[in-house]
Amino acid sequence: MTNTVHRGSSIEFRKVRKTYGSFVALEEFSMTVAPGEFMTLLGPSGSGKTTALNCLAGFIDIGEGDILIDGVSIARVPTEKRGIGMVFQNYSLFPHRTVMGNVAFPLEMRGMGKAEIRTRSLKALEMVRLDGLADRMPHELSGGQKQRVAFARAVVFEPRVLLMDEPLGALDLKLRETLQLEIKQYQRQIGCTVIYVTHDQGEALTLSDRLAVMEKGFIRQLGTPQDLYDRPSSRFVAEFIGSNNIFKVLGSQGASVSMEGIGPIEITGRALPSAGYVALRPEHMRRTPQGRVVTRLEQAVFFGNSIRYVLTGADGKEISLIEPRTQGTQMPEPGSEVRFDFDDESLIYLPE
């Protein structure tokens, strides 16, 4: 790796449509990624996120539309000439090559001299703190070490675009959290543009400059993690990003709004429609004896620094409330009454 931080390339998807028989994997998929941006494609299995990544990489042909890198169409450019680095979930390391040999492979394919290959490979391994393991074989490495080798191999030739397809999916939670921070640090150091695919919303919120929530081949919402968390545009996004209570609006009259699970309640400072849904984050609710909403406690779940209360509201609707735990917090007994309240500004209106 050189010491000069360079910026990545811009990427543009223009109305890409990809089908497999009658199944539509991508439909009117349009998205622009700025140079050096960390963009995440987030969605459930089958939403089209990996298909979009594979179209960009050149692993599959797009059916309709176009993809541009730095304003130039790559639809007819072979995969090996797109200058894109790729990190896979299963590492895809060569079992017969050492750590150094794996990292050096992309440089060998580009015909570089042995001295330059060694220098660049060692710098890439130093970046991921594995230079002391250069002579190890892949079977001698831990899962986290293998993923670092895969990352070093993907960036050793200094690609302007790096694609990552659920690279941390096979690792345990604590290691995933550690590598999330490292990946972001490496990306800032290199300055390349990253498109990252995951179904893990926590991962997406941690890593992304922006993220696109996908469903059935469509982008349902695109924005910063804060935008999508605080202002989801649909019920699907509200339920997919973080934990949310979704209440159906049953009707309104003046300042009084009736909501499923809550019943009639006075809302001040804002107007809610008489139909549709509202979302309320569990952490935006608070237990208080004077609370406007009366529920019954079903279960209190201890998470160390927080407590999650599973409540039953009007009509038997399940409601989740999360509060920070402080020393001496007394948890009520299951079956007891729990009243809660919230700031009316915390309610997020979701169209039908």
Rank of each mutant, 00 (worst) to 15 (best):
M1R: 06
M1P: 10
N3C: 02
H6Q: 14
I11K: 13
R14S: 13
K15T: 13
T19I: 01
Y20P: 04
G21N: 05
M31T: 07
P35I: 00
S45V: 06
T51D: 01
L56R: 04
I60K: 00
G63P: 05
E64I: 01
I69C: 07
I69H: 08
D70L: 00
A75I: 14
R82D: 10
G85R: 02
Q89D: 12
Q89C: 01
L93N: 01
L93E: 01
V99C: 01
G101I: 10
G111I: 09
M127D: 02
R129F: 08
L130G: 01
D131S: 14
E140N: 08
R148A: 07
F151G: 00
V155A: 02
V156D: 10
L162M: 10
E166Q: 12
E166Y: 04
L175G: 07
L175V: 15
R176K: 13
K184I: 11
Q187S: 12
C192R: 01
V194Q: 06
I195A: 07
D200M: 08
L211T: 09
A212R: 07
I219W: 06
L222Y: 13
G223D: 02
L228C: 05
R231Q: 15
R231I: 04
I241M: 14
S243R: 14
I246Q: 09
V249R: 10
G251K: 11
A255C: 10
G261A: 06
I265G: 12
L272S: 11
S274A: 15
T288S: 15
V294G: 04
Q299C: 13
A300T: 14
V301C: 09
G304W: 07
D315K: 00
E318S: 13
R325M: 13
F342M: 07
